[in-house]
């Protein structure tokens, strides 16, 4: 078998393999979302339990300030689930579009271009976002 023939025969397989990889990554991302949801639910449950008990505890002014600050930081950080889920969902949609694009090359599905999906999450850290009053 010549190198040229080898390349010709492996190209369709490479495309199909790539489409299968896309589908596998989409499934992995779905499991990642489930993990985020489960972890966030557990964290929120513990957070609510702590906050409820804390309200019943008498503290001096200095302690109250420190606890309020810690709770505030926790509220900001606990929003990770919403942002991570949106970002993961966006990645899944792009992978699905790529998978369809690859499969269309072999006539397995009707062809269409990669869809434009606006990126909803630009943040790369959990510090609080900007505020604009109109």
């Amino acid at each position: 078998m010549t190198a040229e023939h080898s390349n010709e025969s492996s190209l369709p397989d490479a495309g199909r393999n790539a489409a299968q990889e896309c589908a596998a990554i989409e499934a992995d991302l779905e499991r990642l979302k489930a993990l985020f949801n489960d972890a966030a639910g557990r964290l929120l449950g513990s957070f609510n339990e702590f906050a409820s008990l804390e309200q019943q505890t008498s503290r001096n002014l200095e302690e109250r300030k420190r606890i309020e600050s810690a709770i505030g930081s926790a509220v900001t950080a606990l929003q990770f689930q919403d942002m991570a889920t949106q970002l993961t969902h966006h990645a899944q949609r792009r992978l699905a579009a790529l998978e369809i694009c690859l499969r269309s090359l072999y006539g397995e599905v009707p062809g269409r271009g990669i869809l434009e999906h606006p990126q909803p999450v630009r943040q790369a850290e959990m510090s609080s976002g900007s505020i604009d009053l109109f």
Binding site: Q79, S127, G129, I131, L133, F134
Partner: peptide, 19 residues
Amino acid sequence: KGKAAGATGWLVKPFDPSK
């Protein structure tokens, strides 16, 4: 777009509770 629709303000997540 939010301003044109009539929103009073735009806050980007995550929010800080005190802010």
